[in-house]
Amino acid sequence: MLEHDKIIDGVTEKILLEKEVGVEVARQREMKWIEMFCHWDKWVKHRFQKVKLRCRKGIPSSLRAKAWQLLSNSEELLKNNPGKFEELEREQGEAKWLDIIEKDLHRQFPFHEMFAARGGHGQQDLYRILKAYTIYRPDEGYCQAQAPVAAVLLMHMPAEQAFWCLVQICEKYLPGYYSAGLEAIQLDGEIFFSLLRRTCPMAYRHLKKFKIDPILYMTEWFMCIFSRTLPWACVLRVWDMFFCEGVKIVFRVGLVLLKQMLGSVDKLRELQGMYETMERLRNISPDTIREDILVQEVSVCVSCVLQTAYIKLVSVFTQRHGL
């Protein structure tokens, strides 16, 4: 680990720059994670802060799949439901869901080798787990934003594991995000915008001035957990933190992005219109986002202010919406 001075938004901040983790360091990290896996329950119960810190540093890619399953508890779900996935697979499923799922199979990460070929393994597995979910939760059915999330999981683990991980994301991490009506995501959009007002008034005022509702840019960010938004290395780091800390990471990443894109007079000068601003938000240029800086910013994202503000806002909004 090297310590560097980095200029962010004109302010010099010390950040820990993990520059191409050397082989030695990588091996040490793997050992630490394997050690944690061996006594997982104890680590989570007694040394969660350490687990959190290690997730923020990035889970070694060789162990990521296992870590995600432990963090999300999906591994236990799988153990407690032996044969359930196969059973779900044997069912026919409802045509109205299967129709939309089939139309979406070739529209997820079309340039990823796993999903590029029509009818290839990736697309087949994607079909299997999305279909299984509609049978597992017939009341929920299928939501189009589940496909990219499921695809990211399939890039890391076999279909059955990916299925239970998806179940946890839909039910524990982002409950209601994919349900008919999409109320939860709209509610979180309002909460997100209120948080922005406190954390980056300049970006807030700009979006308000051009009447850019949060729903216009954060729907895809949040529902796909940034998998279509950020450079790939960042996606993985965000997901590592997300599996450990939950939805608040999604909020924080969103706030950091808005701050980086709309948080200074200079940046706003080029964005004098709704169209220009939306373009910027919907096509985040990969070279404006650095993995280490993003993680650093997310970690320090005035966490206690946010936490209290978030809790307050949730209760205000849920009351207002009569939820």
Partner: peptide, 10 residues
């Protein structure tokens, strides 16, 4: 090769 639209775009 393109991706499905999630939400609104313009």
């Amino acid at each position: 090769s393109h991706i499905s639209t999630i939400g609104v775009d313009f």
